[in-house]
């Protein structure tokens, strides 16, 4: 097995989800390589080289790769995958991974496997289908296997490589006929001092029951008391109470914290698909028939506007 992991990074730091993807990769090979593409991304490459069980880091550093657009990255990556004769290429199931993986796979004539939650063997994997209502075991017949991996299903690899992996730079200047097809215009990044949703140990998640964006403030105060962060259901995001990057669920983020507190969340199957692997689930809802109670370890039938202030005073 020769395995390449595609790093998720912001040109400076390696995202924690990539450490989970490396763990998944280690079920296929004891040592794996990591791909880092970006602009002035040597710090991210150095961080990747420190991850345990990494043999080599390929770093494509070029001004055109600043926003890691799939049109630019995919052909570069396809060339390296072919040259190095990889047997497996692993992405994180993030919006970046989901954008790039199929584009790469199509260039290489491979049928990828999305959202892997368990590696059974070199060619056989488990993945959820139908919003997580069923788990399919899929066997690939492709000679190159391309996967996206759910970070929440794998622990993080340590970053204590005593002898860091060597970093090879990849010539990213000749970026093929795709150059200039897409261009970055702007972005609105969520700025938060709190941990990432996908890495947080504690999440307070608000649903439509919160009734306004102002009412999310108490969730932030509760999250801060426990060093956690705040998520939201699709209904709350659609209603404008929370931003899209906060959405937990089948089409949002998949999370598995130690403690997930769902407040005013009814528990549609699409939401449950994003949080039911959490270790402990608490539901606070005034509707005792809400489906969220079916997955909750601790359910409290109460008006959240009474329960949350009381919870805040008890946790202080």
């Amino acid at each position: 097995m020769k395995v390449l992991v595609i790093a998720e990074h912001d040109n400076t730091t390696l995202k924690e989800v990539s450490l989970s993807v490396v763990t998944a990769a280690h079920t296929l090979a004891a040592e794996v390589d990591i791909w880092v593409a970006g602009t002035d991304c040597s710090d991210a490459a150095i961080a990747a080289a420190k991850v345990s069980g990494v043999a080599q880091v390929f770093c494509a550093d070029n001004p055109s790769l600043k926003h890691q657009l799939a049109e630019e990255v995919a052909p570069l990556l396809a060339a390296i995958v072919a040259r190095e004769a990889y047997s497996h290429v692993l992405f994180a199931s993030t919006t970046t991974g989901k954008d790039l993986l199929p584009r790469l796979a199509a260039l290489l004539d491979v049928q990828p496997i999305s959202d892997v939650i368990e590696v059974l063997s070199a060619d056989t994997f488990k993945r959820p289908i139908y919003a997580g209502n069923s788990i399919a075991t899929i066997k690939s017949a492709d000679t190159l296997v391309c996967l996206s991996v759910r970070g929440s299903s794998f622990d993080m690899t340590t970053t204590e490589n005593t002898s860091p992996a060597c970093i090879s730079s990849v010539d990213a200047t000749a970026t093929s006929e795709y150059k200039g097809l897409s261009a970055f215009v702007s972005e609105e990044l969520a700025v938060s001092e709190r941990p990432d949703l996908t890495a947080a140990k504690v999440i307070f998640s608000g649903g439509r029951g919160l009734a306004s964006s102002e009412n999310f403030d108490i969730l932030y105060r509760l999250a801060d008391l426990l060093g956690g962060t705040v998520g939201a259901s699709r209904a709350a995001v659609d209603a404008g109470f929370a931003s899209n990057d906060m959405q937990v669920g089948q089409t949002g983020k998949i999370v598995a914290p130690d403690l997930y507190v769902a407040v005013g969340v009814s528990g549609a199957i699409q939401h449950l698909a994003g949080m039911k692997e959490s270790k402990v689930i608490v539901a606070i809802n005034k509707d005792e028939d809400a489906p969220i109670f079916e997955v909750a370890d601790y359910g409290l039938v109460a008006d959240l506007f009474d329960a949350l202030p009381e919870l805040e005073s008890l946790l202080k």
Binding site: I113, I138, K139, K276, A296, G299, L300, V301
Partner: peptide, 21 residues
Amino acid sequence: SPRTQCIKVELPKQRQSGVKV
């Protein structure tokens, strides 16, 4: 022609039902 084969479909791990406080 298909490149993958679905070997099995099963229920996800079910959570033990919890308690009401």
